[in-house]
Computed example of a mutant assay.
Amino acid sequence: MLVDYTISYLNGTLSGYTGDSLAKQLGEYTYSGYYDPQIWDLNNSTSGIIEIMTGMKEGGYTKAIIPAVLLDTESGMEISQGAGSSLIYEIHLHKVIDNIDQYQIDQIESYLAENLPSISDSTAYGFYYRKTRSNLQDTLDSGDYIQVRYIGRFLNGTVFDTNIEDSAKRYRIYSSGTTYSATSYQYLSDSTEAMDENSFVAGFNKALYGMKPGEEAVTVFYSNLGYGTTGSGSIPGYVPLRFDVWIEDEDNE
């Protein structure tokens, strides 16, 4: 289900919502936030959510109080301050999604056709990648480190993270408390071992594997290779991501 929603406590305090206009009204808007409609998976939900959404049609709206006893499963879709919180849900249903993975693939391929037409095929299911600058001279030995600069975006264009200070300022997500330094990635000849040793999401790991100093690339991947069904921080579940990556030249490390 693709939905817009607001969730509030019985005293009127908001607990969660979509939509940037509400975030701006509340003074909570951030330039790195995700405010588009979100995907809810009824197969991984609470009985209360299932009950109020069963039978809803695309374009429909519902408002209901869900007792705490029906919000007792941690699916990532219910938001509460703790056990015993009944919540008021207001939900606008935009689209019924039969296959969430395929829906994301369609999103990605539509995005690529409009924004990155040079990337037409996936190298693995849900993973799209193109090296935009190559280094044909150097080689990597197992155990070598490369220094990575990156910009992470949602497909709506919002930049949610970067380790490049000028880019953080440009996209208005700069924080004076953040150190904007290159991220280290260790190349290992065994790709599975490299995935285990480097603590990045799988799609980012796949993009970096084998990249050499001076190279650049862009990758887009679905949430199974990103932050999965529950998301992380400002990144919701079921959201495809784009990363532009640059490997620093050895002379600049």
Rank of each mutant, 00 (worst) to 15 (best):
E250S: 12
I173C: 04
S86G: 07
E114D: 15
S142N: 01
L70S: 13
Y238K: 06
E114R: 14
Y129L: 05
D251V: 15
D101R: 14
T139N: 14
V159H: 10
S189T: 14
G157W: 08
L71P: 01
P236A: 07
M77C: 07
S176V: 09
E216L: 05
S75G: 14
R172I: 06
L116T: 07
I164G: 10
Y17R: 13
S110W: 03
Y128E: 11
E74K: 07
F200S: 03
V69G: 06
T162F: 10
N115L: 08
Q25P: 00
N135M: 01
E58C: 10
L140T: 02
N115Y: 10
D121K: 15
L208R: 10
T123N: 11
D244K: 12
F127T: 03
K206L: 14
E215P: 05
H92D: 12
I79G: 02
K206I: 08
F154V: 04
F127C: 01
R172G: 01
Q102N: 15
F200A: 11
T6L: 02
S223L: 13
T219W: 03
I108L: 12
S8A: 12
Q107M: 15
V3S: 06
G48C: 02
G214N: 10
G210S: 10
S175L: 09
D190F: 05
L155N: 05
D138M: 12
D36C: 11
R153A: 06
